[in-house]
Design a protein around this nucleic acid. Structure first.
Length: 449
RNA sequence: UCCCCAGUAGCUCAGUCGGCAGAGCAGAUGGCUGUUAACCAUCGGGUCCGCGGUUCAAGUCCGUGCUGGGGAGCCA
């Protein structure tokens, strides 16, 4: 008999009379002649209640089932006379796959996030984390659907790379003992910090492309928003300027949030109730408003005129501090804000120089509570200017011969951005620590599991 | 890497002025009930994060290390 998932039963008006169900015991309540067993199979947040009568052959063992055990049940699906659930299962046969010993670390009460991180292998068995990871799957799917529907091609950029100077942070080096000098690739290799440069090459032939894959940064960042291994989405579009780039970013975010809200309503409800009571309000605010667009120069002026006391005074020409970003998105506008046209000396070489010769066509998207969610730019497509910018930034042009080639042969204006997938997970769920939206997070000093 | 905070039973936490190590939940045993984080009774359960110091006496005070958390920098 085919196993039926709890989600299928719950969404049914007329479920089949009999079903085979498998899952993990969340709680068991005893009576003299029968047991109530609540099991969860991960298909949805809800559990299903199993009634096991003492007439079942292995009832002695069933009455000893502990939280965390795994069982299969063959039984009748009936309307529940009790409150709290529509359907329940009158068990006819119960297979005990494993009875969890008494030291099973998850109790029925609430655990702290910090404790659950130490048992990352078991935390998906909790309501909160199973919800997080169902939402993560849905949000991933939404990313692919969005781009697919817009005619973008999903491309795979390398994870192993030789480039080491994109200004994107420290890199992990990769070596192998299988070759004598350690250089498997004949020169030093690293884990990628971005697929952008390769994505540009693909965009300059396929038109609109995107990557969605793992990214690695060896920065010793100890914050709730940084991980050493995270997933990044990087669309890259030919015939696209900075303004169109921002249009895509805004539409993209609104689209994937809308889809996730529709398809994960039960899971999201949990976060709105227990994790962040303003979550739905926040998402509503993002969906219903146009994102603000201001230049870097305007941003600095707003900060200067605000009368707000900052630990670091806002100065034109310097990077915006976290406190500045928060003021702009949380206090001044109270909605997502694109800040664009940054001074060229605080941005990397590949961003397109504006006609003022001072700023580049860069844009960052700042979002309340999350901070920087997107960083992007129109790319410098002009061969001579790009070379000059590389010189200014002390980039070794020979290593980038192929990148420069793309500006030599059929170059065209193009743009793209990078969005931290784990950060939009935080936005959508209200979870405040990036370690809690990644199944097995890697952070400085921590690579268990 | 810097600043701040924390570490006590399997988990969540209390522990007063330095003076016998505590509760709830979880577990075991028994009872009761179409139960809903069920309930009632009984029992078992401790390297008070490690090391060093002060003291008649340290979970408590001091130093140091480790681990975790919050913030900053860096970024997505």
């Amino acid at each position: 008999m085919k196993r039926l998932k709890i989600k299928e039963i719950n969404s049914c008006e007329n479920p089949p009379e009999k079903a085979l169900i498998g899952g993990w015991v969340r709680t068991r309540r005893d009576s003299k002649t029968f047991s109530f067993i609540e099991i969860n199979d991960g298909s949805c947040l809800s559990n299903i209640q199993i009634i096991a009568d003492s007439s079942i052959e292995n009832y002695d063992n069933i009455a000893k089932l502990t939280t965390g055990s795994c069982i299969s049940i063959l039984g009748k699906i009936v309307e529940s006379p009790g409150k709290g659930q529509k359907w329940e299962v009158q068990a006819e046969k119960i297979d005990i796959h494993n009875n969890a010993p008494e030291d099973f670390p998850l109790q029925k009460k609430r655990h702290s996030d910090e404790f659950l991180r130490t048992i990352a292998h078991l935390r998906p068995r909790t309501n909160k984390f199973s919800s997080v990871f169902r939402i993560r799957a849905e949000l991933s799917q939404a990313v692919h659907s969005y781009f697919y529907e817009k005619g973008f091609r999903y491309i795979h950029t390398p994870i192993l790379t030789a480039s080491d100077c994109e200004g994107a942070g420290e890199m992990f080096s990769v070596s192998s003992d299988s070759v004598k000098n350690g250089f498997f690739f004949s020169k030093p290799a690293n884990l990628t910090v971005s697929g952008q440069l390769e994505a540009e090459m693909m965009a300059l032939s396929l038109g609109d492309v995107y990557t969605f894959g793992p990214t690695f940064r060896a920065e010793n960042s100890n914050t709730s928003r940084h991980a050493a291994e995270f997933w990044m989405i990087e669309p890259e579009m030919s015939f696209c300027d900075l303004e169109q780039n921002m249009d895509v970013a805004e539409d993209f975010i609104k689209n994937i949030i809308t889809r996730t809200r529709k398809n994960c309503s039960e899971d999201l409800e949990l976060f709105n109730r227990f994790v962040d009571k303003t979550l739905f309000e926040t998402l509503e605010n993002i969906l219903e408003n146009r994102f603000v667009r201001i230049t870097y120069k305007e941003a600095v002026e707003i900060l200067k005129k605000s009368g707000q006391k900052f630990e670091y005074d806002p100065v034109y020409g310097a990077d915006l501090q976290t406190e500045h970003e928060r003021f702009i998105t949380e206090t001044e506008f109270k909605k997502p804000v694109f800040v664009y046209n940054y001074p060229k000396n605080i941005k990397p070489f590949y961003m397109r120089l504006n006609s003022d010769n001072e700023t580049v066509a860069a844009m960052d998207l700042l979002v309340p509570k999350i901070g920087e969610l997107i960083g992007g730019s129109q790319r410098e497509e002009r061969f001579d200017i790009l070379q000059k910018r590389m010189e200014e930034c002390s980039i070794n042009k020979e290593e980038y011969w192929w990148y420069l080639d793309s500006r030599k042969y059929g170059s065209v204006y193009h743009s793209g951005f990078g969005m931290g997938f784990d950060r939009i997970m935080m936005l959508v769920t209200g979870v405040s620590n990036i370690r809690d939206v990644i199944p097995f997070p890697r952070t400085p000093g921590s690579i268990e599991f």
